[in-house]
Design a protein around this nucleic acid. Structure first.
Lengths: 138, 138
DNA sequence: ATTAAATTTAGAATCATTCTAAATTACGTG
DNA sequence: CACGTAATTTAGAATGATTCTAAATTTAAT
């Protein structure tokens, strides 16, 4: 069980100065566990911060990615970049119909038979995207 | 061993009228087994067809995708759409350094442990993207 | 050959994102 | 607490890939 970090702690851990827009954006990322797109994050930020420049949001997201605070994610044949606050190795389940994305624990998918591939290529990262139907929460 | 289809045969199989740009583009797709981006296909087409409108190339690629002749592909955190003439189920090995993409036979990667996921979600498609180093051909 | 429908074309439009330069804010120092 | 400097944010222009539009061209059926 991991302790929930606050936006302020996260920024200080990254060693970047805590400004109002950055705190708001970090907070949104913690709050929304839904792999939001840049566009959505821009919208959420504008709701909380009536005057914020789109450039600030895009710059901040890029900054967060550079510091490894979040990951860029592109799934299936979707055009848009999504951001994932979960930077541990894991996989994704995508419901194309609803657009919902679920994290799958790394170990929920077992990949075997990689020995032969490993002999030919030095493997750096494996990501599995599963498309499926995510049932409505009861 | 599968018989190699010609561009003309492919178009007739799809039931779409064979025009000059379409034949050229289909031919390029067969020739280049390298998962080219739309941009690259546009460039290759312009090399062979001095006057072709970008819109024609984009429209044609979309048409081909709609007819299932090629697949749209987005890998890793790359921004661009790539097109894949191989529509059989398979996976991808991406060399981020060189930008090269290799098809991996579906069976070269064994995925187990899906029973539990299958119980919760109806799984429709699984795609594995492996990042690794593709050595230079000797 | 004629004609109607489909396709292609040039160029404008769109849209997300990045760039630019100026204005504002953060923060260490006196 | 005020100052000065560096970092950050801002508005608005620029970019670049893709789509749209309406006119021109090509295809294919008669």
């Amino acid at each position: 069980m991991e302790r929930l970090e606050s936006a302020k702690e996260a920024l200080s851990r990254l060693g970047i100065t805590a400004t109002t827009p950055r705190l708001v954006i970090a907070d949104i990322l913690f709050e929304r566990q839904e792999h939001p797109t840049a566009r959505e994050i821009l919208r959420y930020t504008q709701e909380r911060l009536p005057v914020v420049a789109p450039a600030t949001v895009y710059n901040t997201l890029n900054l967060f990615v550079e510091h490894g605070f979040i990951h860029e994610l592109r799934l299936g044949d979707e055009g848009s970049v999504r951001y994932d606050i979960n930077t541990d190795p894991h996989h994704h389940l995508l419901d194309k119909e609803s657009g919902q994305v679920l994290d799958l624990p790394f170990d929920s998918v077992q990949i075997s038979n990689l020995e032969e591939l490993e002999r030919e290529y030095s493997l750096q990262r494996i990501s599995v995207t599963i498309e499926g139907k995510i049932p409505r929460r009861s």
